[in-house]
Design a protein around this nucleic acid. Structure first.
Lengths: 214, 214
DNA sequence: AAGAAAACAGCCATGGCTGCTTGTTAATTT
DNA sequence: AAATTAACAAGCAGCCATGGCTGTTTTCTT
């Protein structure tokens, strides 16, 4: 009986060109994965297909990510990172002297029309019947939701006196825009203008008239 | 060279017990298929699985439906038939002396919470990346949409003077409720009450105040 | 009652995807 | 420059879904 081989793995050198190449390849794989989710849907996206589109061999893929769920895990992080970042940018770039509701609606709407949203949507739907995926997706989504709420609270400080009204308003906006996006997915055309204007009007009402429940 | 065998197929006897059994089996298959779509998702539902759950052999299945897309085609007809029927029932059962908006919202909302909606939703999402399925689904969906609009027009005759406002209102209601349903799918909890009340209020405003655009 | 057709069972060949293994080249450490 | 490890290539065995074929039983027609 010998002692177990004390695998003293040397630390990764983050400056070496090997490391950078590895990172680049990983990014390539993740981007390809997300693109495939959008283009083929989650379940049609196989590990093999990702490898092929990336221009890598199956073995090379495996070196970086062992299985599809591994890729997916990393891709989800990557995806949500980007979504949050885009969100933050959109919100912080709103000028101070305009009606922020119009801008906020527009920002969310363009979010939801972005290809990245499609990827998220595919994952979300797939996760309903795939508990492994659901486990991976849930935390990322919770983070996103929390940030969404927090940013909204920052964006509308005058609203913070009635947090429950704000909550309902935010939920409504979100459901509506996501519902529009879904119809956009399936039916490719959505009567966006009128609906968006109505939403803006409703949000203004909710914000400006405290006596508006029921 | 003989003449082509002039296949004089005898007409189906719709009273025979063979025919009825066939119909029953077909129904069983379709119901199983829809259930599988809900339970496993469209792509996870294989022809084999449908056969197994139905308690049929692969050959027996094949006798009734050659391929999965065949089953799906028939299942879609079956599904939309049921959805439309449920819709019609819900609408026609609304009493005359109440605010029909509340009832209509409730009717649509319970529609969208029904398992059948989940099946439709799965198909709809899958059709984005599956053109064969899209082809099958599109006509059924168009029929449903048309009927939805028509029934709404019947339900709110006083609104028919401003068809564009009605259109926008109907679209908004639909997008919102579907968006809620989607979130329900993925996150299992939706702040329904407040949002539904807001929707009702908005619809009432739109109906009763003609000066409300912009 | 006999022939035809429908309803059903089960097998086989094919092809795609997965997990795993082995081999090769390039970079890094000492 | 020798040894080590990372990066990538490529193949294999197993699994499962599919399409298609053949055989058996039940029902229908005449």
């Amino acid at each position: 009986m010998t002692a177990p081989p004390q695998e003293m793995k040397r630390p990764v050198n983050k400056d070496g060109r090997q490391y950078r190449k590895s990172q680049a390849t990983k990014m390539l794989i993740l981007e390809t994965a997300v693109n495939c989710f959008v283009k083929y849907g989650y379940h049609q996206t196989t590990a093999l297909k990702i490898a092929e589109v990336s221009g890598l061999s199956r073995g090379a893929m495996r070196h970086h990510f062992v299985s599809k769920i591994d890729i997916t895990r990393a891709a989800i992080d990557y995806l949500y990172e980007k979504r949050l970042q885009a969100f933050r940018e959109a919100v912080t770039s709103i000028p101070a002297d305009v009606d922020r509701i119009v801008f906020a609606v527009e920002a969310f709407w363009s979010q939801v029309n972005h290809p990245l949203y499609m990827a998220f949507f595919e994952l979300s739907v797939a996760s309903r019947t795939d508990s492994e995926l659901a486990q991976v997706l849930r935390p990322a989504e919770e983070t996103f939701n929390r940030t969404y709420m927090e940013m909204a609270a920052e964006l509308f400080p005058e609203w913070s006196q009635r947090p429950d009204t704000l909550r309902v308003a935010l939920n409504l906006a979100r459901y509506l825009l996501e519902g529009m996006a879904v119809d956009l997915v399936a039916r490719e055309s959505v009567e966006a203008q009128g609906v968006l204007h109505l939403l803006e009007r409703l949000l203004r009402d909710l914000r400006d008239r405290p006596d508006l429940r029921g």
